[in-house]
Amino acid sequence: MEMAYYPGCTLHASSSLYDVQIRLIFEKLGINLKEIDDWNCCGATSAGKVDDFLAVAMPARNIGIAEAAGFSEVMIPCSSCYSRTLVAKHHLIDNPALKEQINEELSGKIQGHIKVSSILEVLLARVASGDIDEITGKKLKGLKPVCYYGCLQTRFPYNVPVPDDVENPQGMETILKVIGVKALDWSYKTDCCGASASINDEDTAMNLMARIMKDAVARGANCMVVTCPMCQLNMDVYQDKFCEAHNIAERLPVFFITELIGLAMDISLSELQVDRHFIDGVALLKGLDPA
């Protein structure tokens, strides 16, 4: 089957490993991802702080292109892009005048019926259909992850259908269970990593991340699993820094969920580009006992 795919700026740059992993595992799942033609930046978390019109208009153009191309579903792996696009879609549905106004300048006109899905929603449908269980021969024993969702997978600043439990989502846990991984229960799965604060308000971001890390360590986790590239980058790149500042001795690799699924599908660590993490995850994954 075919599905529209919106990678977003970061999957074409600092988190391109996530893009590589997604393409690899979706190919195995038989889903043909079609990158939206000539897509633009969604405005991320910045647009709402700069101009509310842009916060809708920027993702609106991408929706228009995908709909004009005839797609009924678009998969957006980055939490920020996903949240912005979903919120924009519902703004446009609720405000036909605004939709009209934006459509005037767009070459791909918006209807507002495309399903905007996070990567978890798409993968969960494949869990339900049994596809993932069928393809993943390998079960990953020895991993003790905490699933870290961050903010924008379940909290939206607008009335939209929320795909999972707001305070205690279970999507990642459900997927990991199929590949033999039992994720640990913990209290910080939807806490904020600070997002761009790691660059514009460092101390605040380091405090937030240290709190998340402390709970993960206290629960006995040996890694973190995420879907959001911003959470991944922050928790990985700044881990030495916030751990040193907050007296945390342990270090945890921060995996994209696609890395673990890929491994269970027998895709090699080098193909998955696991060596591109700041906190090494290769040793942990190599040491797993394939059962």
Binding site: C9, T10, A13, D38, N40, C41, V50, L54, M58
Partner: peptide, 17 residues
């Protein structure tokens, strides 16, 4: 931060880090 981010996103269509 937010001003520069949006300016880049609009100027080129995508944010080049």
């Amino acid at each position: 931060f937010h001003g520069t981010f949006i300016n880049s996103g609009i100027r080129w269509g995508r944010v080049n880090e």
